[in-house]
């Protein structure tokens, strides 16, 4: 299909030249690296909100501890990626106020909230596993400060992944039939959202995309989507979740996953106009910025030189 098929990351010439903050970079590279880091910082900081609002509703103490750990981890990921962006000239205040004031977009999966506790496990498992597949490719990228940040993040994502498995396992083993049905429904609701999260199907020209030629994007959307399905579908089956072949099945003849195509028109609408929770998260971030503004200004003003 394309020349990179079957072509290993190790011998990919796009990825041979790496950059540190202080290196000279090709025209447009610095801006592209800043964009990818600030985009992720926002995703980490807003993406944690649907989890954070369940913290005081966690059903037992250990679960609450684990959820708190995950939430702290995610905010830490926001800090680490924001530092990468800040060193490249995009301050975190700008990342957050651009979002609060409607100048930046949010990944489609963060436009929702969890309606039930049982929904969280499968949704978090789909989210974490796709993030891990993305990061494991991106950490081979050419901007080293970002690659390093991702390798740190991956260790914590591995805990989130196992925590999400455990949460789903608890519902599927000890839950009532109604609770198991909620977990099943969560899988069916979130699978198409996560399929869309990997981005539109590869075009014939994706290799000319500057993010790709710079080696900041390492693999194509379809490559990553296929890798992810290979990894995650068996995990859900083992947990007792039914994977409807119409939603996703491995086609032996094609040797690839065939899945129900996300409704790309609806996805586009959500990205442009916002999904059910966008206004709420915006207001939350705007409120936090305002409430903490005084303290932040005083703290940064009193910086010892």
């Amino acid at each position: 299909m394309t020349i990179t098929q079957g072509h290993g990351i190790d011998d990919d010439t796009r990825l041979a030249q790496k950059y540190e903050l202080w290196d000279e970079m090709p025209e447009g590279y610095r801006e592209a690296a800043a964009r990818i880091a600030s985009f992720q910082a926002l995703a980490e900081l807003v993406g944690v909100l649907p989890f954070a609002e369940w913290l005081d509703r966690a059903p037992d103490f250990e679960r609450k501890q684990m959820l708190a750990a995950k939430i702290q981890d995610e905010v830490g990921h926001g800090h680490v990626t924001a530092r990468v962006a800040e060193d490249l000239g995009v301050p975190r205040e700008q990342i957050l106020s651009d979002f609060a004031e409607g100048r930046s977009k949010l990944l489609n999966i963060f436009h929702y909230r969890f309606e039930t506790w049982e929904e969280i496990g499968p949704a978090a498992l789909l989210m974490n596993s796709s993030a891990i597949v993305q990061f494991q490719a991106l950490d081979k990228g050419t901007y080293l400060p970002y690659a390093r940040a991702l390798r740190k993040i991956e260790k914590e994502e591995s805990f989130h992944y196992h925590h999400a498995i455990d949460l789903t396992h608890q519902t599927m083993t000890l839950g009532t039939p109604e609770q198991r049905a909620l977990a099943q429904r969560s899988f069916e609701t979130w699978l198409p959202r996560l399929l869309a999260y990997f981005g539109p199907p590869d075009t014939d020209t994706y290799q000319q995309n500057p993010m790709y030629t710079f080696g900041l994007k390492v693999k194509s959307n379809d490559q990553l989507r296929q890798e992810w399905l290979t990894k995650i579908v068996p995990v859900f089956r083992d947990l007792g979740i039914q994977v409807d072949p119409d939603l996703a099945r491995f086609d032996e003849d094609l040797q690839e996953w065939v899945y129900a195509a996300p409704d790309w028109i609806e996805i586009k609408r959500i990205l442009n106009e916002g999904g059910p929770m966008l206004a709420h998260w915006r207001a939350h971030i705007a409120g936090t910025l305002e409430r903490n503004g005084t303290y932040r200004d005083i703290a940064l003003e009193g910086v010892p030189a």
Partner: peptide
């Protein structure tokens, strides 16, 4: 390992 942003050394 990386950096943090802060207005105060102990923080």
């Amino acid at each position: 390992v990386g950096s943090v942003r802060s207005g105060d050394p102990e923080l």
